[in-house]
Amino acid sequence: MASPFSPASSLSPAASSSSTSGQPLVEKPPVPPVNILPSPTSQIYSFVQPTLLLTLFAFRFDALTANPARELLNSLPWVLLLQLSYVMVCLPPVGTVPSPSSSKVTDTGSPVPGDGERKSAPRSPSSPSVALRPGKPGYRRKQQTGKNVWAGIWAKLMPAFLSLALLSLLATPVLAILLVLFGAPLTTQNAETMLCAAHMAVLSATALIYVHGVDGAAWKEVWGFALPADTVWGGALGTGLGAWFGAIPIPLDWDRPWQAFPITILVGAYIGYAVGTLVSRSPFLYGKRIRFAPEDNEIAEKKKN
């Protein structure tokens, strides 16, 4: 039986040129896995942040059991603050990760440079800080100024604002509808349903929006469960699976106060997020994709045999 995971480097064929023109086939590569930023602060905080989330949730669990709606509303800003600090410190913002809509691969497997890419100019052997361009005099590199620093900060703030907008306008309502479809009360406990959806949206969608923005090709892979395993996709998938498994104790006749909706769902979502964020970075899963069908080459080999 074939493994359900496949390497992220395998390319899915996408027809793009007519056979009459004689041009080589052009394929769009899949979305690459997202890496944690290499700075020591990012690496350390990527492990600290899931621990802080679980600690906050465990510390406020008694209050959540006593009054779920009030506690979910009070803790939501803190969870959102932890998530925004995590994505801004640890993850590359949208536009810095290659996407299928901005890059192409030829039939030989070599990437086609985009319009914004520049080839490295030859440098003068006598002055390593001077770059020479054909037909233009040499110029010296500009040192990093305050304007460049603010541009870097703004490049992180804009995706964060985009995440806030889409979390409230799209992610939370969609997850609330999914909760109702999976058995949440329709006419009662509406506040608990919306707040549970808001917490799940913050956990699962903040990093996805911050890294991928509104790129259509990336979100097709999100809804098709085709993204490669990384800390972003692992956290989102872990949140959904954890919430699904967390709903199991609700209908059981144990007569416990913590069985009330949506407490166990949130317990599963938070644990699933923390586990998925960390486990998906392991060498055994990183960069692998879930496969629901065999590859084309496997089908061809079976037909030959």
Rank of each mutant, 00 (worst) to 15 (best):
A2K: 05
F5N: 12
S10L: 14
S16M: 01
S16Q: 06
G22L: 12
Q23G: 02
Q23L: 13
V26W: 04
K28E: 03
K28H: 09
P29E: 06
V31K: 04
P32L: 05
P33W: 02
V34M: 04
N35T: 15
V48I: 14
L52V: 03
L53E: 13
L53G: 09
L54K: 09
F57Q: 11
L64W: 08
T65S: 07
A66V: 02
N67Y: 06
N67M: 06
E71Y: 10
L72T: 03
N74K: 11
N74W: 06
P77H: 02
P77M: 03
L81S: 13
Q83M: 15
L84Y: 00
L84A: 02
V87G: 00
M88D: 06
C90L: 14
V94G: 10
V97E: 00
S101E: 09
K104D: 09
K104G: 05
T108Y: 09
G109T: 15
G109E: 04
V112R: 09
P113Y: 05
R118G: 06
R118D: 11
K119Q: 15
R123M: 13
S124A: 13
S126N: 08
S126C: 07
S129P: 06
A131S: 13
L132S: 09
Y139R: 15
R141M: 07
T145E: 15
N148E: 15
V149T: 14
V149S: 12
W150R: 15
W154I: 15
W154R: 10
M158T: 14
P159S: 03
L162W: 03
S168M: 13
T172Q: 10
P173S: 05
L175W: 05
I177S: 10
I177G: 09
A191F: 07
E192D: 10
T193I: 06
M200A: 04
M200Y: 07
V202E: 02
V202Q: 01
S204T: 04
T206S: 00
A207S: 06
V211W: 01
V214F: 00
V214D: 03
A217D: 10
A218S: 11
W219G: 01
W223L: 11
V232W: 00
L237F: 13
G240A: 02
G240F: 04
G240W: 03
L241Q: 08
A243S: 13
F245Q: 04
F245M: 12
I248E: 15
P249W: 01
P251W: 11
P251F: 12
D253F: 08
D255M: 08
D255P: 04
W258G: 09
W258R: 01
I265C: 05
V267L: 07
G268T: 05
A269K: 01
A274N: 04
L278H: 08
R281Y: 11
S282R: 11
R291V: 06
F292Q: 00
F292Y: 06
P294C: 00
P294A: 04
N297M: 05
E301H: 12
E301N: 14
E301T: 12
